[in-house]
């Protein structure tokens, strides 16, 4: 080794050279196979996110926990009591009650498990979004393939997305950097989903508008709007791969309400007012129509927020869904109804 070589090596610098052909592996080996096959558990592929600082009120948790435990204990005692009495009456009755109790228990546990799983899926999407955000700004480091692998795994069992996923696999080469891979997934896989989700929001907001306009009682249309909104949120979430359970959708709805509120109460109120006045002709004809339009707009807002919350890659400035088409659609509702 010459003097210059040692000096260079000491600085950690490697001179240009040719290397052994057989020892070279494609970049980055294991992650690319994950990307190509769509296998690999995303939970393993993604680094565990830092646990966010919980800001929920501790006392409330304790209260709910304790109450739930009390109810469970009471239920247990009652069931045991019931079983004892049933067996005391007759063996057949005892077996029947025991079977019923067992079924209820198993069903309850199964439901709990599915709920937990759906919550995990929701959390995974949030992780993916955070990861995508990091990839957009960070310096390269070979994590894009991992991200792509996770996203592909999320959608691997969706038959209608198979062509898009195949296209992405086809297009991504070793020359694409993180930013490009994320953009490619966004364009090829998620934009068809966006279009479908937007259609659903459009339909749901029209439904609520018409239902409110036609319903005879205020309580009834409240129920209809609530049910339709919940259904919309679940539809959108399953479209993006979250498939939430009941708890999941409630959680989503809660986060969404917070989101709508935080995103600007004033802004949304202002918009609604403007929409209401803009549709003043309809409002003048019938207050029910006006209310219908307002309810439709609120549903649309809920739907669009759900899209924002369920999308694994955050919307960019040029593909953000807009209220424009929904607005036009809704303003034509009075005409349709009349």
């Amino acid at each position: 080794m010459t003097e210059r070589d040692t000096r260079n090596a000491s600085k950690g610098w490697v001179p240009p050279m040719e290397l052994d052909l057989d020892r070279a592996a494609p970049v980055p080996a294991e992650e690319e196979t994950a990307l190509l096959t769509g296998s690999g558990d995303p939970a393993d592929l993604l680094p565990a996110p830092a646990t966010p600082v919980r800001t929920t009120r501790r006392l409330g948790r304790w209260l709910f926990g304790a109450l739930a435990a009390l109810v469970l204990v009471a239920l247990g005692f009652d069931t045991a009591d019931l079983l004892a009495r049933a067996f005391a009456t007759s063996l057949a009755l005892g077996v029947l009650v025991a079977l019923l109790a067992a079924t209820a228990g198993i069903a309850g546990v199964a439901m709990l498990v599915t709920e937990l799983l759906s919550l995990r899926r929701l959390r995974r999407i949030e992780e993916l979004r955070a990861e995508a955000g990091r990839l957009e700004v960070d310096a390269p480091g070979g994590r894009a393939d991992r991200f792509a692998g996770s996203l592909v795994a999320l959608y691997s069992d969706r038959r209608e997305l198979a062509p898009a996923l195949a296209r992405v696999r086809d297009h991504v080469t070793d020359a694409h950097d993180e930013h490009e891979v994320v953009r490619l997934l966004d364009r090829e896989v998620l934009s068809p989903l966006d279009r479908a989700a937007y259609q659903r929001v459009l339909r749901a907001s029209r439904d609520t508008a018409v239902a409110t306009a036609l319903s005879p009682a205020a309580l009834l249309d409240f129920a209809v709007v609530l049910w339709r909104n919940l259904k919309l949120v679940r539809e959108i979430a399953s479209l993006y791969g979250a498939r939430p359970g009941y708890v999941g959708s409630l959680r989503l709805l809660r986060r969404m309400l917070a989101n709508i509120a935080v995103a600007g109460v004033t802004e949304s109120a202002h918009h609604v007012a403007v929409e209401a006045l803009g549709g003043s002709l309809a409002a003048a004809i019938s207050t029910r129509m006006g209310q219908g339009v307002i309810n439709g707009l609120l549903t649309a807002r809920v739907g669009l927020t759900a899209m924002h919350l369920c999308r694994p890659i955050a919307f960019g400035p040029d593909n953000r869904p807009s209220m424009n088409r929904i607005r036009k659609e809704l303003l034509s509702v009075p005409k349709q109804v009349l």
């Binding site: 090596a9 490697v14 240009p16 050279m17 040719e18 290397l19 052994d20 052909l21 020892r23 070279a24 592996a25 494609p26 970049v27 980055p28 080996a29």
Partner: peptide
């Protein structure tokens, strides 16, 4: 491609240089 050199991971390119017929790995 990635290859190992003196304990370090090196990112290289693999291709056939002009005038040769076997591929090579070049850093």
């Amino acid at each position: 491609v990635v290859t190992e050199h003196e304990g370090r991971q090196l990112r290289c390119v693999r291709g056939i240089p002009v005038g040769r017929d076997r591929p090579t790995v070049l850093f």
